[in-house]
Design a binder for these strands. Structure first.
Lengths: 198, 198
DNA sequence: GTCTATAGAGCGATAGAC
DNA sequence: GTCTATCGCTCTATAGAC
């Protein structure tokens, strides 16, 4: 489906990002060629370079946009509650819902860190650290308020994020458990994990 | 460091596996060339094919060997205790210790699943499922004995494994916490997670 | 805005010498 | 047991036509 005329640059740009996202998630950055991305978009390979500086930028842009979207979305959903457990529950629910609806982005953001140049890696890592600190601050507040009982806020943060994000490795739409039910189960496990007062 | 004569095939075979392991872990299967592996071993690329059928076999052999080693190691450490919590603790300690000492193998076993042919993927998945079932059976026994309180053994199994394996993403030797301390922290978190009777 | 054509390089795997 | 040389192919990125 070549498109010589009547094509919108905005559309093509969006299509290229979508194709790169899904192919990188499916096969991995190094295993995907620019030709393959072009083929999925329905365009010749040369046209890709009107929209991206090179293959590396394509990956870095996807990953940075994902991390920024994640942080912005939490900013909108954060109840800013003073009750640590309410805020914790909001975070857990948000994290699971967001991750279950952005499977490809999440997968790439974790799997392709090593495919980034050092500069791009540093950018993504900085954003990742910001997101981790959201949870870590909630945990520290909960410990101060005697709402949570846990040994090490930093390790607990990383353990929780690993546990919650792990849902992406096995969840399939239409499976045994609905997203809502999954959210409940993980919230209950998370409560035990942080020693939340019952 | 070419080695024309006096070389032992056994040594070379071991060196090739070690080089492939560390390069695959560092850069990813698709991003590593056979030439690069040969260079690290100190051999010309043609020599690799005396020891492996092709690049895919090199990866599959590493992954299958890792999963079989993991299962065999647990077989040796399993206390076979009738007390579910004792057996659970043994598993948690084993998992963390094993994973902290086989960082590259663990990383590859998770990251390179998609680089396997369907046949090799099925083999690795079967072994992975066996390992998951070890933990799942412990959880089910603990629920039956009223030692654990948890909602869904399958989901809890996957959540625990994700949490425990996640230690590999941040642990660095010589860091703030010793492996022994890390093991303690994760065991405490795991107890909360499964609702272990205190 | 997209095409075709191509450069320059690297890839996996094999053949045959030693 | 390892080397050198090579086949046939694919890769990223760019130049210039339309």
């Amino acid at each position: 489906m070549a498109r010589k005329t009547g094509s919108s640059g905005v559309e093509t740009a969006r299509d290229i990002r979508a194709a790169a996202l899904s192919l990188f998630a499916e096969k991995g950055y190094a295993a995907v060629s620019m030709r393959e991305i072009a083929r999925r978009v329905g365009v010749q390979v040369g046209a890709l370079y009107l929209y991206t500086q090179d293959k590396q930028s394509l990956l870095a842009d996807l990953m940075i946009a994902h991390m920024e979207d994640l942080l912005a979305a939490w900013g909108r959903e954060d109840p800013q509650s003073t009750d640590p457990l309410a805020r914790f529950d909001a975070f857990v629910g948000f994290h699971i819902r967001y991750h279950l609806t952005r499977v490809d982005e999440v997968f790439i953001a974790y799997m392709e860190l090593r495919s980034l140049t050092p500069e791009n890696f540093a950018r993504v890592e900085r954003l990742r650290r910001l997101y981790e600190n959201v949870l870590q601050d909630i945990l520290i507040a909960g410990v101060s308020a005697n709402s949570f009982r846990l040994t090490d806020p930093r390790v607990t943060t990383l353990a929780l994020i690993a546990m919650l994000t792990g849902v992406n490795t096995w969840y399939r739409a239409g499976g045994r458990l609905s997203p809502e039910r999954i959210e409940e189960i993980y919230r209950d496990m998370a409560h035990g994990l942080i020693g939340a007062e019952p």
